[in-house]
Simulated scan of single mutants.
Amino acid sequence: MNIVKASQHLNVVVEMASKLFLTFSCILFLASFMLPVLSHLQDPHLRPNTLSGNGGSLKAMQGCRKGDKVNGIRDLKLYLAHFGYLNYKKNPSATDLEENHFDEELEVAVKSYQVYYHLNATGILDEPTVSQIAMPRCGCLDKVTHGHTHNSIHTVSRYAFLPGTPRWNKGQLTYGFGPLFPARFIPPVDRAFGRWDAASQYFTFSRATSYQVADLKVTFQRVDHRDGSPFNGSGGVLAHAFSPPDGRVHFDADERWAIGAVPNAFDMESVAIHEIGHLLGLGHSQFQSAIMWSSFSSGVTKGLSSDDIQGLRALYGA
Score class of each variant (00 low, 15 high):
23 T>L: 13
310 Q>V: 05
56 G>N: 14
209 T>C: 03
4 V>L: 13
189 V>F: 01
284 H>V: 11
280 L>Y: 00
302 K>I: 03
274 H>E: 02
34 M>Q: 04
160 A>L: 05
166 P>K: 11
3 I>D: 11
170 K>A: 05
167 R>I: 01
109 A>T: 05
9 H>F: 13
312 L>N: 05
244 P>N: 12
184 R>S: 15
182 P>V: 07
121 A>L: 13
130 V>G: 09
14 V>N: 04
311 G>S: 14
124 I>Y: 06
65 R>Q: 15
23 T>C: 13
140 C>P: 09
211 Y>L: 11
109 A>Y: 04
8 Q>P: 08
191 R>F: 00
45 H>C: 10
287 F>S: 09
249 V>P: 03
262 V>R: 14
210 S>Q: 07
107 E>F: 12
317 G>H: 08
186 I>G: 07
165 T>S: 12
125 L>N: 07
183 A>G: 14
85 Y>I: 09
228 G>E: 08
93 S>V: 15
113 Y>Q: 12
188 P>F: 01
181 F>M: 02
227 D>C: 11
153 I>F: 02
259 I>C: 12
276 I>N: 01
47 R>V: 13
196 W>G: 01
256 R>V: 09
42 Q>P: 09
112 S>H: 12
30 L>T: 09
18 S>H: 05
110 V>K: 08
49 N>W: 08
277 G>K: 01
274 H>N: 05
269 E>H: 03
96 D>F: 03
252 D>E: 07
289 S>M: 14
17 A>K: 02
123 G>N: 14
304 L>Y: 00
79 Y>Q: 13
162 L>A: 15
138 C>A: 08
119 L>R: 10
152 S>A: 09
37 V>M: 04
158 R>N: 13
110 V>R: 11
23 T>P: 08
98 E>G: 10
88 Y>T: 08
70 V>H: 03
24 F>R: 11
74 R>F: 06
175 Y>W: 02
183 A>C: 10
194 G>T: 02
313 R>D: 07
193 F>N: 03
165 T>D: 07
108 V>E: 10
177 F>L: 11
289 S>G: 09
28 L>D: 08
289 S>L: 15
130 V>Y: 01
70 V>C: 06
311 G>D: 04
212 Q>K: 15
41 L>R: 06
245 P>N: 01
250 H>N: 11
53 G>H: 06
3 I>N: 08
244 P>A: 14
302 K>E: 03
257 W>F: 06
305 S>D: 13
107 E>R: 15
150 H>Y: 13
275 E>K: 12
34 M>N: 03
214 A>R: 00
318 A>L: 03
230 P>C: 14
178 G>P: 14
192 A>P: 02
234 S>D: 10
151 N>A: 15
270 S>Y: 01
222 R>F: 04
54 N>V: 10
277 G>P: 00
274 H>G: 05
12 V>Q: 10
63 G>R: 11
186 I>D: 06
282 L>S: 04
8 Q>F: 08
316 Y>I: 07
296 F>A: 15
